[in-house]
Every structure is written in C-alpha cells, then in structure tokens.
Design a protein around this nucleic acid. Structure first.
Lengths: 340, 340
DNA sequence: CTGTTAGCGCCTTCAT
DNA sequence: ATGAAGGCGCTAACAG
C-alpha cells in the first residue's frame, strides 16, 4: 500500500515488487534488457498498482537533463508573441523539449521572478520575447549564465543570440509601397521609440527612404497605446496639415494599428479613400476592416522556430561560441487601405 | 570559489561564510532573527560573491510547497483563453502562486505529456482550459489526484470544480435580442457540438427561446473552423431560403465569428443591412468590421480569477469537499450588425 | 544562537 | 541479473 498521503515513491514500488530500487530505476530508464522477464513483470504491475510516477524533481536534482525550455513573454495578449510561440513549440516538439511559458505582463518584477524560477528549475535555456520589456529587466537576464535567445530585440553591450525581422528592409519596403501608390505625405506612427532597437531601425529606414524624395512630407509621431485622445489629435492635425494631398499613415506594430483604426473611425476618417494606412504585423481581421488594411506580415512561425533552433545550438556549443543574429524578411500584404 | 561547472550550492555558501548549511538555510527562509548580525553579514556576502541561488528542485523535493500552479490551455491562439489566463495570473499573484502555462495545441499527446510533467513537478493544482479538449484527454486528468478546476466545461461522470459562463442565459439573451430587433429567421452556427456541454447548452437555449415563437424560422448548422467552402454554402442557402425575410446568424464562438465574417465578405453579404450577425465572445475588432458586429461578451477576466480562487479553495479543502460550479453572466454588446 | 544529522526520491557506481 | 550504499541540494529535527 502506498504511503497514506502523497504519491508512491520508487521505494514503494521496489517493496511491492519485492526487489530493490536499482532494478526499478533501471526499468524506468530503458535499461530493461538487463532485467529478467519475471522481474520486469512484477515491476510493471507494481507501478500500475500504485499509480507510480517518477518525480522529475528528484530526477533532475541528481543532475540529469531536464529537457525543459523556458519562454518569457512580456505580453501574451500580443498576437505576434503568440504566433512566435507556436513556432517555438513546434521546434521544441521536434527536439523532445518541453516548453514552459511565463507571461510577465510587462511587469519588471515578474520578469525577475520568472527568470529566477526557471533558472532554479534548471531549464536548459530560455527564449525571451522582449517586445516591451525594459532594459533593466534584460540586464538581469544577462547575469544568469543560462543559454538564451532574444526575439526581435538587441541590447547594447549585451552579447546574446537574436532572431527577428529584418526591420530595415521591412520598413523600406512598406515606405516604398506607399510612395509607389502615389502618397505625398506620410506619417510614421509608433509607440515611444526610446532605446528599443527594433523601433529605431524601423523608423530609421522610413526616414532614409523618404529622404530620397525631399519634396514629399515625412512626418513622425510617438504615442502610447492607451492614449486615444492624443492619437486622435495627431491624426487630425496630420490630416489638416496636408489637406488636398494624398496622405498615408504607417503604424509600427499590430497593437498600435488597432488603436489607429479605432481613432480614425471616431474621427470619421476612412482609410482607403480619405487616407492611406499600412501597419506592421498581420492582423486576422485586416481584410474585414473597412476597405481592408494593408499589412507588413512577419514570418512569425519561422522566427519562433529559428529562435529555438538557435537556442539548441547555443546549449550544445556553450556560452563561449560567437553570438549569432538571424533576421527574416517580411511580406507586404496589400489591401484596400493603400490602393485607390 | 564555486565549483568549476554548475552553480554554487548551499554548502559552498556555508563554507565560504565559514558556517553550517543550517544557518544559510535559515537566512534564506526568513528566520533571520535567529542569526547574529555578524553571521548574517558573512552569509549575505558569500551569497553575492558566489551568485548563489537556491535550487527549487531540492527545496520542494524535501517536501515543501512548490507554490506552483499549472495551466493547461488547449489553444493559446484563442483570445478567450488568453483573456481568462490574465485573470488567473492576477489571482495567482494575489496568492503568491506562480503560474506555469502549457499549450497543448489541441493535441491529445501533448495534454498527457504536460499533465504528467506538471504532476511530476508537484504543482499544487491545475486549471484546465478545456475548450476544444477531447474527453479522452480529460479522463486522464481525472486519474491524477491533483486539485483541478475546469474552465467552461463539464464532463459527465467526472466530478470536478468548474467555472464558466452561464451558457443558457447567454444564449437566451442573444436570441431574444435578435427577436426584439425583428429578425424572423435565425441560423445558429457552431462548430460540431458533439458531447461538449458548453456547446450543447448554448444550442439548447437557442432552441428553447425560438420555440416560443413557432412562426419564426429557427435553423441550426455545424461547421468546422477551417472549411470555408462549407460555411459559404450554409450561409448562401440560408440566405436564399429566407429571401425577403429579416434574417440573422448567431455564431457560437469568437473564432467562428471570424470565419463567418470572412465567408460573408466573400459572398458579398453585408452584415447589418443584408443580414443580422451576433457572435459569442467579444472581439477587439468588432467595431471596425463593416457596420460593427454585435457580440456576447464573456467576463473572461473574472472567470479566470474565480477559477483560481476555486482552485485554492480546493487545495485547502482537499479532494473530498463537495464539487463546486460557478457561472457568470455575459453581456450583450450591441453594434451595427443587429440594428437597422 | 549555531552546527550536526538524517532524510526527501532518484540515479549510479560498485559489489555480488 | 540484482541489490546495497552513497550522494544530488536542501530542510528540519535535535542537540549543543
């Protein structure tokens, strides 16, 4: 009989099967060829009878591999992150790894907490989807000697593998499309750029592309996600300033595009006819909103998959191997918001 | 100096601080009032110097609480699930619990795998967001004696705490709204109902409500999420069959609503003018799609929060306490798709 | 106040 | 082919 409270242990099984712990352990670890059929039978039955399941805790305490990978996501609400996650998961399955997901909800405390947790559970590596994560938090990560790969984010003075979008190319592509469509004034809208390299790169590419056409108006504005009023003001003024010209807005990410669309709707501005609209990140509802919204779609699944492959590589090679950065190209999905 | 490979252990710290493991352990566990200041100093420094971090593995192996909660999600892609998760997380924080998220990607294997994993890591309880999960998989869960609560799903012959939507009320509410708006023919569209109680309840309530108006047309159809052609056919025929009447479609969940909207668009049917449309689950883009889509919004955050509270209760009370079921009311958010 | 000791459940030599 | 013994890192009696 198993001990009153708690689950059965390997000793319980051994006792029930009238043998020693060693044999049970061997049975569990695929060294069954070393056991007599009779013993195997007894062990098998004991396990079933006691509903025994080995404790991973104890197992990996002993120093074995955990085959665990941690994923730290700053905002699970972000479809981009979820899509990337699917790629990571697929790759994990491929490698016989198990993924543990931690959502930090954009809170620095949580980041630290989860990092410590994952580390103390001896995950073999972590993927950090840092969109929105602050520098301070990431520097904590640096401390831990865990193999790690960053998604779509580089940190100054922090050598770390990274996988993400070719932001420069993507932003150029987006801007060029708008120019080709004959827009004469373009507003590049993003959340506060700060020191976040992803945002900087996109903005830079926009500026460089526009710089080739000095007679056109290239504007830029930053607005937080939750300030609808400010967004309306920015949009309204941009619109007014370029009355009579063909004008368009680029939104730097999916979450922002939603807010932009809402603001335009409140203002009674129609994308497609009154103004052009192009957003980074594919949206499942892009085709349903008004005339449709043109997006720059990221290969999220591939990014996630590649990130995990990179992590596996890092785990194999150790922390001394040179840092690797890998970027993928985006795809422009043209819809009604940028065509006549 | 810490051992060459691997991290420092409590013994290393003890040695460096010229003391015993016990004192270090005490220092770690908030029993600092039992230590002399001098010792405290030495330990603190040793910890910093060695970058020591206690192994949760070892700790909980010893029999302590893990303060870990597992969340099994069938489809992380589903915004409903993600929203519920946010509620769970908030409640976890409140209780000093840490949430480990596992996405089974609707694969039965994964469900088993994760369940075993979580169980072997001694999580104190699990929340199962079973939308889409198959019965077989859930019966596995039943085996494990883990405290558990189901989200929006009941399983026959399986006594388990549950938190979810008041499906009957919600579906009645939705149907009544359509009737009030003067729709004369209503099509209730859902994924295959099967034995899933949530889907059955919604459908039943629809039928009962419609039964009070025998002169009106109450239709029902089931279609898988990925079969756009079938969806178009169903919609087209429904439309044709009731030409000249005011007709509407109820979509049984958010993911389906997206497909329905796409299909209507392909068919050139406009919701709001040609046909009514009402979907379960709030959609962030509901106001942006055409005339806007009326939704039945679930209090997802509260559902998640309540689920975790229930789990905590279950953990405290043990597995013998009577089963508890808790349902919340939905809210109708009326938009252009169901008004003239 | 502080250190010694004995496990937690498992894996792994090392004997038998 | 099988089992006994030791130890992974930590906590919790139980002495000093």
């Amino acid at each position: 009989m198993p001990r009153a409270a708690g689950r059965a242990t390997i000793s319980d099984v051994a006792r029930t099967a009238r043998t020693g712990k060693t044999s049970v352990s061997r049975y569990l670890n695929g060294e069954q060829h070393l056991l007599s059929d009779a013993l195997k039978q007894r062990i098998e039955q004991a396990i079933r009878q006691l509903d025994y399941r080995p404790s991973q805790m104890a197992r990996s305490l002993k120093g074995g591999q955990t085959r665990l990978i941690g994923l730290i996501i700053a905002d699970i609400t972000n479809p981009y992150s979820v899509d990337v996650m699917r790629g990571i998961e697929a790759a994990c399955r491929q490698h016989g790894l198990t993924l543990l997901v931690c959502n930090t909800n954009n809170e620095v405390n949580q980041e630290q907490h989860y990092l410590q947790l994952l580390s103390s559970y001896r995950v073999e590596g972590i993927v950090v989807n840092a969109v929105g994560m602050r520098e301070e938090a990431l520097s904590m990560l640096q401390q831990s000697q865990l193999p790690m790969v960053l998604i779509d984010r580089k940190i100054p003075d922090f050598a770390c593998d990274m996988v993400g979008l070719n932001n420069h190319e993507a932003a150029s592509q987006a801007t060029s499309h708008l120019l080709q469509q004959g827009f004469e004034a373009i507003l590049y809208l993003s959340e506060p750029v700060g020191a976040i390299n992803t945002r900087q790169e996109r903005l830079l590419a926009f500026r460089q592309t526009m710089a080739q056409h000095p007679h056109l108006a290239a504007e830029q504005a930053e607005t937080p996600l939750n300030d609808g009023k400010k967004l309306e003001a920015v949009l309204h003024e941009f619109s007014a300033r370029h009355r009579g010209m063909r004008k368009a807005v680029i939104s730097a990410n999916g979450a922002l595009t939603l807010q932009v669309a809402r603001a335009m709707r409140r203002l009674g501005i129609l994308w497609g006819s009154d103004i052009g609209l192009l957003g980074f990140d594919e949206l499942e509802w892009a085709e349903l909103a008004g005339a449709g919204i043109t997006t720059l779609k990221q290969p999220t699944y591939r990014i996630g998959y590649a990130a995990l492959e990179q992590l596996v590589l890092r785990i194999q090679q150790g922390m001394d191997a040179p840092v690797n950065e890998q970027v993928f190209s985006g795809t422009l999905v043209v819809r009604g918001s940028t065509t006549r």
